[in-house]
Design a protein around this nucleic acid. Structure first.
Length: 916
RNA sequence: GGGCGAAUAGCUCAGCUGGUCAGAGCACCUGUCUUACACACAGGACGUCGGGGGUUCGAAUCCCUCUUCGCCCACCA
């Protein structure tokens, strides 16, 4: 630990050095882990949205984790037992895809390796390269408890996954069923509804004519966007009330190309207004058709295989002409359309923009496909999650997302949790291999080696679970669940805030709430904070494929982690997107860079003046020793603290983990918090107090000590307020403050509180500020060189002369104007004077009046004032206003009008004097 | 097709429950290397708060409508 020595601060702010100096010290001194000494404190828990284990840090992670770090540092300082649990996600499909790509480069597929070796290879890859992102998070200052780093595929979390699956099965909510699901032919697996994302596509609508089997002169025209599926058609459906087709219901049609006979059925699913009002039914390759097929007991021939290739699958014998077999689905579409055209069955093709589902991992067009999958029946879980929001155990900020959450949960559909990939948690179900044994599938928390009935061989279900099936347990699986007695689980569950982006509200956020409510009976957090997305100047989301990304580590290298953090937090209105220009980092990160430089300079100068000797605590200073400036800055600090507290809001519901209506929408306004702290340290402490206090610090004596004490105190407060946002600079500066004890950290220092019994107020100094501003304006107006001293007379009403006189040296120094103070009867003899907003009057600086300029200025000002006065008088003459407006307001308006009338008189007199 | 949100200074946005609310940052203009800071300081200019109605003594702030964007959901074959 370096001894406090302000002389040791380098003149320029070296962000890299600060980061290298402080992060390891925090880590080594246990700043990030919960403090055993805080066992009696309230826990405050955030679980980190686990990045994919193979991910590299992008600016979205940067934003997300900065927000979390700001919150956790804030609560840590506020005295909570703060815990931020970090970790990574094994990211089933995504990670498998990465390794499969490597294999492709080697000319191999996963099937060449086989399941076990492939999984081993992925695990090895993850071991070697995975989790790098967590190291990168340290570079931006993330103060997570790294001793608790978790991984969704660790043995401990695998136990949790099995427990969850088995428990849901016991609850009757897990089932296996044959359904049409979203299938990614490239990944070779099913996807959940959420994983199959819509993309607007300029498709075509093909109108096909299906003739009656026994009377080809008649027929029905159907419309489809996927003509290749016609091979799997088993019916044509028309609306029961549709008179056009009523006579045809029950008749047989001959499928073109193959001649397969299919019936016309009546089903209300059909919309008579769409297309021809008749729809072809392909139960194996369309979820709706599947429902129709079930209703009518139709066959469900599969004509596309797992790779999306046309092929006779289950129930499809004789349905695929040899010429088409083996064609990829898109090649098949073209071929079939051609053949239909040749056969005269293609009525027309029209452009048809529509939404087509794509795989969220590889962007391949999803193929609906009939297959056996595992599902979770979500209704009962969703009901609990809805109740939690409605009951106030959960809130979502910004609140408008609550409606989206409710809407989704109300319409919840069963969750397809099985995936036909290899990288992930195996479905914990075993089947007896012995023919005729009759043993039902065994769902088990532990591996099953032999059939419990016949003792014969068993095989485990080949599927793995959706990666989100482990993620949704994250808030408690990371804390020791399912071990109900685990110390972490008991102490830190439920947690507090979840910080994430709206994109995964359904994927993850809602499901965590459901899991928490279902398995533990409590929501995993009381607040969901949804931040915006980082976008470029064209408002496009930053992405690798667009090449418009920003590498946070680049920013850290160029401007420092603090500058990165400041820029993001200061621009982070609640739920508002953050716009950054990837082509101009200098401009994008100017706010953070400038602020950090300024803060450093403030600290460097202030510390050099305060020196290293101990200072008197502010509370111990005699009230009468405080100057107007001292009283003012202490008042401003109190106010800044209040503003920061108000912006950050309640850390948790006050009572019973339940939000009241009054609390619900409050807090987490990070940009407001940043602005309040910035204004204090820059516009108040540096621009005014520090400037005003320079002469006092240069002199010797008791007043110097008072100034030192107040300065140190105010800066200490500022550093505490700012630390959560810019931890490195604030820590480095704070360590140099005379009051700092060696071995303590700002990161663990108490969050400031406003004084309980303020001494003095800010009014007298505010008066001096007005005088200074007025003089500066005059100087600028008359082009007085900034460095030169001039003389002037400050004129003020008698009541204020005393207050101003005491501050005259300070005002003079700040305005570089030697001043006399003179008394004037309000509105009277000082008619010559230039008035500015109220009380103080500054006589034009001797000999510097430019008559023309002054006349123009005065008449302009007079015209403005007269206009405003007329409006104000009009309002006061309005009887309704006087009758209905609050009396206090009316009084204030009257006073204002009187003041303005006087002002107008003064200006007019002055103009006249000028002309004379 | 439903639902939600946004339109305020050149840009990105604050302005919560109607009465100093017309603001901040960046950009811009004019001075200044005033011995902490030119990534700064001082002073300035800039908006009839998307259009149109309405409620009210009074609206950027509430209601209706139009226009333009954005987001979410949805089984338009």
């Amino acid at each position: 630990m370096t001894a406090p020595d302000s002389g040791s601060l380098p003149t320029t702010h070296d962000a890299a050095a600060l980061q290298a100096a402080w992060y390891p010290r925090w880590d080594a001194n246990g700043v990030f882990a919960p403090d055993p000494a805080r066992a009696g404190a309230e826990p405050f828990v955030i679980v980190m949205p686990p990045p994919n284990v193979t991910a590299v840090l992008h600016v979205g992670h940067g934003l997300n984790n900065t927000v979390q770090d700001v919150l956790i540092r804030w609560r840590r300082m506020a005295g909570d037992d703060a815990l931020w649990v970090p970790g990574t996600d094994h990211a089933g499909i995504a990670t498998q895809n990465v390794v499969e790509k490597q294999l492709v480069a080697e000319g191999l597929t996963r099937f060449d390796l086989g399941r076990e070796p492939f999984v081993a290879r992925v695990a090895e890859f993850v071991d070697k390269t995975g989790g790098a992102i967590l190291e990168q998070l340290k570079a931006i200052g993330a103060s997570a408890d790294w001793t608790r780093t978790a991984y969704t595929f660790s043995p401990a979390l695998s136990t949790a996954v099995r427990e969850a699956f088995v428990r849901l099965h016991e609850d009757g909510l897990v089932y296996r069923g044959k359904r049409v699901i979203h299938w990614c032919p490239r990944c070779g697996t099913s996807l959940s509804d959420e994983e199959a994302e819509f993309t607007d596509t300029a498709g075509s609508l093909y109108h096909l004519r299906y003739p009656l089997a026994d009377d080809p002169s008649q027929g029905i025209t159907v419309a489809t966007t996927r003509p290749e599926t016609m091979l799997g058609d088993v019916a044509v459906a028309v609306h029961p009330e549709d008179d056009r087709y009523r006579a045809l219901v029950g008749r047989a049609l001959a499928l073109p190309l193959t001649g397969v006979r299919i019936p016309v059925v009546a089903d209300a699913y059909t919309d008579p207004a769409f297309g021809s009002g008749a729809v072809k039914i392909t139960p194996a390759h369309d979820a709706n058709d599947f429902e129709v097929g079930k209703r009518h007991g139709l066959a469900m021939p599969v004509v596309l295989d797992a790779e999306g290739v046309v092929r006779e699958g289950e129930d499809a014998a004789g349905r695929v002409p040899a010429a088409l077999a083996g064609l990829d689905r898109f090649a098949a579409r073209a071929a079939i359309v051609e053949q239909l055209r040749a056969a005269g069955a293609l009525v027309k093709v029209e452009p048809h923009p529509h939404s087509v589902r794509h795989c969220y991992r590889c962007d391949t067009v999803v193929e609906p496909r009939l297959s056996n999958q595992w599902f979770v029946h979500m209704r009962p879980l969703a009901d609990k999650a809805l109740a939690a929001l409605r009951g106030g155990q959960l809130r979502i900020l910004p609140e408008r997302w609550e409606a989206v959450y409710v809407n989704w949960l109300e319409g919840i559909r069963d969750w397809n949790i099985s995936r036909q990939i290899w990288w992930g948690h195996r479905v914990p179900v075993w089947y007896c291999e012995a023919p005729g044994c009759g043993q039902a599938p065994v769902v088990s928390r532990t591996d099953v080696a032999a059939c419990p009935a016949c003792g014969g061989a068993v095989r485990q279900d080949a599927d793995v679970l959706d990666t989100w099936f482990s993620s949704w347990l994250w808030p408690f699986s990371t804390l020791g669940w399912p071990d109900a007695g685990h110390a972490d689980l008991r102490r830190y569950y439920p947690g507090d805030v979840l910080v994430t982006a709206p994109e995964i509200l359904f994927f993850w956020v809602s499901r965590m709430v459901m899991a928490g409510c279902w398995f533990l009976g409590e929501t995993p957090y009381h607040t969901v904070y949804l931040h915006g997305t980082v976008r470029d100047m064209q408002h496009r989301k930053m992405s690798k494929s667009l090449g418009n990304g920003i590498d946070p580590l680049d920013v850290v290298r160029q401007y420092g982690a603090d500058a990165l953090r400041w820029t993001m937090v200061a621009g982070l209105g609640l739920g508002v997107d953050v716009m950054l220009d990837p082509t101009d980092l200098d401009k994008s990160f100017a706010p953070g860079r400038n602020f950090c430089t300024k803060l450093w300079n403030i600290g460097r100068f202030l510390l050099s003046r305060v020196g290293a000797e101990p200072v008197t605590p502010v509370a111990a200073l005699p009230a009468e020793a405080l100057t107007a400036a001292d009283a003012w800055i202490l008042t401003r600090l109190d106010e800044a603290i209040r503003e920061c507290d108000a912006a950050l809001g309640p850390a948790r519901p006050a009572v019973d983990r339940t939000w009241t209506e009054a609390e619900r929408g409050r807090g987490l306004r990070l940009s407001e918090y940043a602005e309040a702290a910035r204004r204090f340290v820059w516009n108040e402490l540096a621009d005014w107090y520090l400037e005003s206090v320079k002469p006092r610090l240069a002199a010797d004596g008791a007043d110097r000590e008072v100034a030192r004490a107040v300065l140190a105190h105010a800066f200490d407060g500022a550093l505490r307020l700012l630390h959560p946002i810019v931890p490195f600079i604030t820590e480095a500066l704070w360590q140099q403050l005379p009051g700092t004890t060696a071995g303590t950290f700002l990161a663990q220092a108490p969050w400031p509180a406003p004084r309980a019994e303020p001494v003095g107020d800010g009014a007298p100094f505010a008066l001096a500020q007005e005088a200074v501003v007025a003089i500066r304006q005059l100087r600028a107006e008359y082009g007085v060189p900034a460095g030169s001293w001039v003389e002037g007379v400050l004129v003020a009403p008698a009541a204020l002369v005393a207050a101003l006189t005491a501050q005259l040296p300070m005002v003079a120094a700040l305005a570089r104007t030697r001043l006399l103070v003179a008394e004037a009867a309000p509105g009277g003899a000082a008619a010559q004077a230039l008035l500015r907003d109220g009380v103080e009057v500054v006589i034009p600086l001797a000999g510097m009046v430019d008559v023309e300029k002054e006349r123009a200025r005065l008449s302009g000002e007079l015209a403005d004032l007269e206009r405003h006065l007329a409006a104000l008088e009009g309002r006061l003459a309005n009887e309704k206003f006087v009758a209905k407006a609050p009396p206090a307001l009316v009084e204030a308006e009257r006073a204002k009008a009187a003041e303005w009338r006087v002002r107008c008189g003064q200006l007019a007199t002055k103009l006249a004097a000028l002309d004379a």
